[in-house]
């Protein structure tokens, strides 16, 4: 009995030692020599593997980052300036600071403002619906509300509001990785400067139709009247194809355009509530 036990223990131990030696030799033979800094850079990165930097995952970014001669074009939107500074330190360079960005949904066509004229009956995918038609409302540009942006967000930072049926970005969670921007087949989502204390102003519409049809399809559409561009003291607003666009680098957040917009298509976010002064003004200010 005991002899069987001893034999078994012996055989297994010898087998173990032999295999360990084999493993060691193989590992030595096929060892891949890598720049050790890649691991260091990767350790600094957030590890979300979101692809927001344009590389396949954090490892891919780290490899490219270590190899790159010029790192000014490379940026990890999730980690932001701090992460970039740390990563640059690892390879002995300095990173330029960039303004933090946030995803902005440029459509305010809730059912209240934009009547549904058709009923979609298919798989819940904006991409699929886009192949079928331009949308279930009179607006051919607006949000379809089927949530492709929600599906691709790795940070749980975007959800469809059950009442407005529009995506809402949670700016605390949003890392500006840009996945939703790429996923939206209507090109409604844009990465914009987050602004001081989150204050920002943008045109929440991408309808390029003329004023009449645009307004008919959606009450809060930009009708391309150009009043905002005229009133803007900083030359930040351009109107092209019946649609106004605010350049966030020029905008000084004076809010004159918001007051001027006849349809309330311009949004101001994170501003303190303003005093009521002008009578008959449309209630455009939506403070989140």
């Amino acid at each position: 009995m005991s002899s069987i036990l001893i034999t078994a223990i012996l055989v297994l131990s010898i087998l173990g030692v032999l295999l360990a030696v084999v493993l060691y030799l193989v590992a030595q033979k096929f060892k891949v020599i890598e720049d050790p800094r890649i691991d260091l850079v990767e350790a600094v990165l957030p590890g979300a593997n979101c692809g927001g930097c344009g590389y396949p995952g954090c490892r891919g970014f780290a490899e490219a980052f270590v190899k790159a001669d010029d790192i000014t074009t490379m940026f990890c939107p999730v980690g932001g300036n701090d992460t970039m500074a740390n990563a640059a330190q690892v390879i002995g360079k300095t990173a330029e600071a960039k303004d933090p960005l946030v995803a902005v949904v440029r459509c305010s066509g809730s059912p209240e403002h934009r009547k549904r004229v058709l009923e979609y009956d298919g798989a819940a995918s904006c991409k699929l619906a886009t192949a079928l038609y331009s949308g279930d409302t009179g607006c051919h540009y607006g949000c379809l509300g089927l949530g492709d942006c929600v599906a691709v967000c790795k940070f749980d930072a975007i959800y469809i509001d059950p009442i407005t049926l529009l995506p809402v970005v949670d700016e605390e969670k949003c890392t500006a990785c840009g996945a939703c921007v790429k996923a939206c087949p209507k090109f409604i989502i844009e990465l914009r400067k987050k602004g001081p204390k989150g204050k920002r102003i943008y045109v929440s519409c991408i309808n390029k139709d003329k004023g009449g049809p645009a307004r008919k399809a959606c009450q809060v559409a930009c009708i391309g009247c150009g009043k905002c561009a005229k009133v803007c003291p900083h030359d930040a607003i351009t109107v092209e194809n019946n649609l106004a666009y605010i350049d966030y680098n020029k905008c000084k957040l004076c809010r004159k355009c918001v007051e001027e917009c006849p349809t309330g298509a311009i949004m101001e976010i994170n501003f303190p509530p303003r005093k009521q002064k002008v009578e008959g003004q449309t209630e455009s200010a939506e403070t989140v």
């Binding site: 549904r116 004229v117 058709l118 979609y120 298919g122 798989a123 079928l132 038609y133 279930d136």
Partner: peptide
């Protein structure tokens, strides 16, 4: 009623 639009 609204027209239904669905993929084939």
């Amino acid at each position: 009623s609204k027209l239904v639009v669905s993929p084939s």
